[in-house]
Amino acid sequence: MKTVARSMGTSALILASFAILGAGLVAVTHIGTQDRIAAAQQAALEANLNALVPEERYDNRVAEDRLDVVAPEWLGTDQPVPFYRARQAGQPVALFATPVAPDGYSGSIHLLIGVYADGTLAGVRVLAHRETPGLGDVIEERRSPWILSFTGKSLTNPPPERWKVKKDGGVFDQFTGATVTPRAVVGAVRRFLEYVQIHHERLFAPTAASAPESDLTSNSVDLIEPRKRGEDP
């Protein structure tokens, strides 16, 4: 009996010490790498943004000028969506956000959308998706130029009722064998533009420096959804 209890104790001790060792190793590495990881993520974000809006058009640190917005009906996710503002001498130039197209063929499509202060699209990119390889993944920039067709468009060009894929009477191409994917992307971009139009003043407000009374430039402001969306096609 005694020996069994002793060997159990030893085993438990060994297991516990290895658990502590493992946790310690992970903790040390985490501390050692977290700054680099954050820097790498920021660099990746900036590289993405600069592909949409040229670097020389703004002078602020975009990754730090951030506003988190919760608006599931418009942005396709319950999670806060970060909005980044690009400014030139404090004046708003463009806005970037990462809304979601929730109705892709196999789940959500994560987008990066850039829009200039005048409401024209600086561009759209796909950050992550699980669409069918070879059919739906044509939305990726490296696979086809389709996603570039959004650049320069706005809610007046084409008019709102033509913000659809061609099959639904709109102006955007669909792909052979995949209509659901481009339809989801077009819908998400249109909803995003509508949201930006409604909240234009607040989203494109000048910086805190030029308008110190504004509390909108602080982080994590929840914009309250103005009204329920009407029927969604």
């Binding site: 060997s7 030893t10 085993s11 438990a12 060994i14 297991l15 290895f18 658990a19 060792l21 493992g22 946790a23 190793l25 992970v26 590495t29 985490h30 790498t33 680099r36 990881i37 790498a40």
Partner: peptide, 26 residues
């Protein structure tokens, strides 16, 4: 110890993979 070798192996391997994950990310 023989009795706990499998959980210990899994623990060590999981820790190493987490390290690899963070190092590659950084």
């Amino acid at each position: 110890a023989q009795e706990v070798r499998i959980p210990v192996f899994i623990l060590l391997i999981a820790a190493l993979v987490t390290l690899a994950d963070m190092v590659i990310n950084a």
